[in-house]
């Protein structure tokens, strides 16, 4: 589905953010990208949809290299890649519905989008997605009137409006409280399963990642230092990724939290789709 080969990014300042990254993600797999701040997680996913221009290497989407395309072809490529942001990145003064419909911008012409005359099927899909994330009654609300968790749900709906094949998720829970973080992670993972999307999630919270994803890639100083199952993250490996620290607590912590979750009837019921 997604295949990165030799992806390298050197910023104009000379900093090497990514060094020869090769990685492939099959459809339906949820991959967590972990690593310390500045390891290049954000740069990596931005190189995929070219919000950041990679210096070298190839980004193949369904076997097609999109790392050099420009103009219309780039927009075509981007519309197959949904993105969810840390600070929601909603346009605050637009309504919830306009934010969700903006996911269809690459499918409609300028004047159509200017007059907000989206095809009926798009509106129906937007409604279904809003209903799926539980916000269908808010569609006319201005998005700055929403809470953090609600904003992130709108962000998710916008990304899925694109009918993407690949989902890039940048620190989806960094601005949210622990409970909302869990709900958002669960929602993202469920939706990826439903639509069989390849997904890369940047995440700081190792315990949260372990709980939800299929595969973990550890990044340190722009290089992959771990690629394997979430269960394989031993304290030794965490030390390679993040540096020296007492990791025993993290593990204990994550165990406790999942216990709590399983004890909670309601949450356990929703967690049916959890791997």
């Amino acid at each position: 589905m997604l295949k990165l080969t030799g992806l390298t990014k050197r910023y104009a300042t000379g900093d090497l953010a990514l060094n020869d990254i090769s990685l492939s993600v099959p459809a339906g797999q949820v991959l967590a990208l972990i690593g310390p701040s500045g390891a290049g997680k954000s740069t990596l996913i931005r190189c995929v949809n070219r919000l950041v221009e990679p210096t070298a290497g190839a980004v193949e989407l369904d076997g097609r290299d999109i790392s050099k395309v420009r103009g219309g072809a780039l927009r075509q490529a981007r519309r197959q890649i949904g993105m969810i942001f840390q600070n929601y990145a909603l346009v605050e003064r637009l309504s919830v519905m306009e934010n969700v419909l903006s996911g269809r911008l690459a499918y409609v012409g300028f004047w159509r989008s200017y007059f907000r005359k989206f095809p009926a099927n798009d509106v129906k899909q937007a409604y279904r997605l809003l209903a799926r994330v539980g916000l269908e009654s808010m569609l006319d609300k201005r998005s700055d009137a929403l809470s953090g968790g609600q904003k992130q749900r709108v962000g998710i709906a916008r990304a899925l409006m694109q009918n993407p094949k690949l989902l890039l998720v940048d620190e989806p829970t960094a601005s949210l409280d622990p409970k909302t973080s869990r709900q958002i992670m669960r929602l993202i993972c469920e939706l990826c399963q439903e639509q069989n999307l390849a997904t890369i999630i940047n995440i700081h919270d190792v315990a949260l990642a372990q709980q939800f994803v299929h595969r973990v890639v550890g990044l340190r100083a722009g290089e992959i230092v771990y690629d394997g199952s979430p269960d394989g993250l031993t304290p030794d490996i965490l030390t390679t990724i993040y540096g020296e620290e007492d990791w025993s607590l993290t593990h204990q912590d994550s165990g406790k939290q999942s216990d709590n979750d399983q004890n909670d009837d309601v949450e356990a019921a929703i967690m049916g789709g959890h791997p």
């Binding site: 309504s95 519905m97 306009e98 907000r116 005359k117 989206f118 095809p119 009926a120 099927n121 798009d122 509106v123 129906k124 937007a126 409604y127 269908e136 569609l139 006319d140």
Partner: peptide, 9 residues
């Protein structure tokens, strides 16, 4: 909106 009709307020 459920039936595909929506314009901003």
């Amino acid at each position: 909106a459920q039936n595909g009709q929506w314009q901003p307020l």
